[in-house]
Amino acid sequence: MTISTHQAPPLVTLRGVTKTFGDVVALDDVTTDLNRHTSTALIGGNGAGKTTLLRILAGVYRPTEGSATFAEGDMTAHRRKIGVMTESTGLHLRLTAWENIRFHARLFGVEDGLARERSEALATQLGLGAALDRRTEGFSRGMRQKTALMRALVHEPELLLLDEPTAGLDITSARAVRGLIESLVDEGRGVMWSTHDLTAAKVCGHVLVMHNGQLVADGSLESVLEAHGAGHLEDLYLTLTNEATPEFKAGMEGDS
């Protein structure tokens, strides 16, 4: 499903990105590229720095050091080209799914008619068609996830940032979401997908593994596995997050 077009300029470039909150170093010297036609799995344990990295990409945080650029400009200047689905979904529960989507569509400058058209198409694809005009307070976790995903997609972003998009979804729904993401990648968009679900991560063309704010693996799944002599992603993840030593990391940097 991944067509990596490394010849094209990267969609997003991160160079030496460090983010601190007081004494806490949430991100430490992160350097990588995100490309079009590529889905990137962002893997890491709790507190690894995944959400901070997503927030920097979304323009919510600014790097303390280093740079994050979208094509040739600052991330915040290109917010309308980015769609974000946050971990908590962030829906307004007294509003219907459509009203939630319409609100964000308006902020992104999408007319109501067009937003409705796109919402209905996405809802059908995700199996949420009948619930579009229902208040989200009665929604299950999965339905809220889908609504948040639709909201992130309604302005047809070039880069989609997803924080645990399949968490809490049943098998059918998770497959529908993955299918949607695959089709978005095929259309040429870049997708970054933060997940604990290594099964889902296996289908991504680009894998980033984070640990204690540092990027400890970066590349295609095959190249990362080969570089560290791991047979499976699970083995690699455990090795990198539990046993990673400075020498090991130094070797990693040399590889990448």
């Binding site: 927030r55 323009g59 946050t86 908590s88 979904t89 962030g90 829906l91 529960l93 902020l107």
Partner: peptide
């Protein structure tokens, strides 16, 4: 608290 602030901050406003 509800998490909707983050979604709002991601919008181009």
């Amino acid at each position: 608290e509800r998490g909707s602030m983050e979604a709002l901050l991601c919008a181009p406003a």
